[in-house]
């Protein structure tokens, strides 16, 4: 299937992109890796009149350590994140999630910025970024603003980005040394979207959860935090019994969808199982 006709605007800088978006308003779409947008355009579910390609903007593709954060340029690909030594060491949750998105070819093209902006509640990055309290640098006609992850994922396929804004950088707080993270994704086949996935990051010291973060994919209209689990574990002993009891709370406050691959009940159940397994993995040998 062939996308509907559109005008293509390749920009070299972020301000140019912002200007083009401002000019064309709702009729325009931003193109990065294209792995969320192009499939929709091919099925003509998305028919923008103008496509603004930021793929050639320099300096939007990097992973670097800044004060207290790991910063990702919006054009950083899933592949680069999957294989980054810095990410594997500092944010193993993100490396783990990146390695499970789509398939190798998709990971070579898809970008973190694109996936975040697409705000798919069954997407893998949104949950991780929410879980990690990431912050999003956004540039619009009135300059730059920073959006917290908790404010960024507004609804199903809806982020806090305005149509004339460009997401440029995503920053994730660097966790304390010895922090572990993992992303457990349950799907029918490995290339599929998650039926449910759990993002977990834990700092365990003296057999206690010093810091704990749990997020849920595909358990509602937006990515969610499993706050009840976090509360049940923070400062508590990292033992099997505590973990099991806490994981039972994983589905609290969620509103999981119904589709061919999972009923709400099944998803609630999977959330508890995956949460427990993730925690077991993170505390193994500690």
């Amino acid at each position: 299937m062939i996308p509907a006709s559109f005008d293509y605007i390749a920009v070299k800088t972020v301000p140019e992109a912002v200007a083009e978006l401002a000019k064309h308003g709702d009729e325009s779409k931003l193109l990065a890796g294209g792995h969320s947008l192009i499939p929709l355009m091919k099925l003509r579910l998305s028919t923008p009149s103008f496509v603004v390609d930021i793929g050639r903007v320099k300096d939007l593709n990097y992973i670097r350590r800044t004060d207290g954060h790991i910063a990702f340029g919006a054009l950083t690909t899933h592949h680069d994140i999957e294989f980054s030594d810095l990410v594997k060491e500092q944010l193993p949750l993100l490396a783990s999630a990146a390695s499970q998105i789509g398939d190798p070819q998709v990971r070579n093209r898809g970008t973190m910025g694109g996936a975040a902006a697409h705000a798919d509640p069954s997407g893998d990055y949104p949950t991780c970024l929410l879980t990690l309290d990431a912050e999003f640098d956004v540039v619009g006609p009135n300059g730059r603003r920073v959006i917290k992850a908790s404010d960024f994922f507004v609804g199903t396929f809806t982020s806090a980005l305005q149509p004339d804004e460009v997401l440029t950088e995503i920053r994730v707080p660097a966790p304390p040394a010895g922090t572990r993270g993992t992303y457990l994704k349950f799907s029918r086949r490995s290339q599929d979207w998650a039926i449910v996935a759990v993002a977990a990051q834990a700092t365990v010291k003296d057999r206690k959860f010093q810091e704990i973060r749990i997020g849920l994919t595909s358990m509602g209209g937006t990515p969610l935090r499993a706050s009840a689990v976090e509360a049940a574990l923070r400062g508590k002993s990292a033992d099997a019994d505590t973990i099991r009891k806490a994981a039972e709370k994983a589905a609290e406050g969620t509103d999981p969808p119904q589709d061919l691959n999972g009923s709400p009940d099944y998803r609630r159940h999977l959330a508890t199982v995956l949460t427990r397994r993730a925690l077991e993995q993170l505390t193994a040998g500690r």
């Binding site: 029918r188 086949r189 490995s190 290339q191 599929d192 979207w193 061919l260």
Partner: peptide
């Protein structure tokens, strides 16, 4: 038809 694409109609992959 609710399974009208290869995203919804699951044919086995190598890893399955």
């Amino acid at each position: 038809l609710k399974t009208g694409t290869l995203v919804d109609y699951l044919i086995p992959t190598a890893s399955d």
